[in-house]
Simulated assay, not measured.
Amino acid sequence: MAQRALPLPAPRLGRAVRTAGATTAVSGVVLLLPDGEADSHRRPSPLSYARQLPLARTLARAGKEDGLAVHVVRYSCRGWNATDAQLAADAAWSVEEVVRLYGDVPICLAGHGMGGRAALRAGGHPAVGSVLAMAPWLPESGPNSPSGPDSPEPEPVKHLLGRQVLLVHGTNDARTDPELSFRLAERAKKTNRDTCRFEVHSDGHSLRQHRAEVTALAANFIRGSLFGHAYARPVTDALAAPPPLGLRMPLAAGFGKSLHH
């Protein structure tokens, strides 16, 4: 007798990360979406969740005067799983959960790797004001891909209209192709001018080599997109520049040192 597949556990939000001294009311939320795998029904590893906590704490500190709360999403499983797009479905659920918990507050979906793809895919929810995709995992698709003309349709981008969208990718990423995120940003920019992309030269998939700059960029983008703070000059320039300039903006060493939160 064949074994029946066990139902997936429900996704859930990790405990809200807020900084001591934060304003009492939550005025905006960041949902951090961890990396995942292409195909897997296994439960996510606790490590993938734990890896997001330092960024969650840094963002909460940066936005404490704005009433920012940060949640790391706990997926139902670790795989995207083809057309199931499970991680994107979990991201969409997490947005609904934030609306249920906090009401009408602006939300930023921020993901890394497979979580970056989930953030982009789920970014069309009306409650989402901005999307941050770090080293997003994106499949090759369309007639020019190695899979040929019968490969899947390109990732959708038109639903991102009206959102602030930032992609960040290391140029030496051996796991997710930076050129694919550039192509997606190029398509997104055609329908949504509020799209930009930064390149972190010589950095890899984890963006560890320039973590301080990437974190400062994320904090600046989130505070600007959710709460209306002024963007740092490089972000303003990247959003305003025509392609490809604003989609291949180099993230300068030391970015963020002159920014005050």
Rank of each mutant, 00 (worst) to 15 (best):
A60W: 08
P178I: 11
G63S: 07
C108T: 15
V105R: 05
E37Y: 08
H261Q: 09
V235Q: 08
A110C: 15
V72L: 04
Q52I: 11
G129K: 15
A174Q: 15
G162C: 02
S258V: 14
S145G: 11
V105D: 01
A218D: 02
A232E: 11
T24R: 15
V73L: 14
A122T: 07
K189N: 05
L101N: 03
L59K: 06
N172A: 15
V168W: 04
P46W: 12
Y102L: 04
A10R: 15
I107C: 03
A219L: 03
N220G: 02
A118Q: 07
A185N: 03
V73N: 06
A118L: 03
E97G: 00
A118W: 05
T176L: 03
A216P: 02
V200H: 01
Y231S: 05
P146D: 09
G36D: 03
R12F: 02
P250S: 04
L251E: 00
A2W: 12
F182P: 00
L6D: 14
P156T: 06
R43G: 07
G28W: 02
V29F: 06
A85Y: 01
R51S: 14
T171W: 03
Q209F: 07
E179L: 03
C108M: 13
S40Y: 00
H125D: 05
T83Y: 03
N144W: 12
A174R: 15
A135C: 11
Y231R: 12
L101T: 09
L167N: 04
A122R: 08
A219S: 04
S225H: 07
G170V: 13
P243D: 00
H125N: 03
T236I: 12
A212Y: 07
G224L: 08
F221T: 08
G170L: 10
S145D: 07
R208Q: 13
A253V: 14
K158H: 09
A218I: 05
L109M: 09
A216C: 05
V168E: 01
L245F: 07
S151M: 11
S151H: 09
R51C: 13
A219D: 00
P156E: 01
C196F: 03
R183Y: 03
N192V: 14
G162D: 06
R78I: 12
V128P: 00
R223T: 04
T24E: 14
Q86E: 07
G63C: 06
S76L: 10
S76E: 08
R43A: 15
S48W: 08
L120R: 03
V128N: 01
A253K: 15
R187P: 00
H260Q: 15
G228A: 08
D104G: 00
T236S: 14
F198V: 10
L138A: 05
E155Y: 02
G123Q: 08
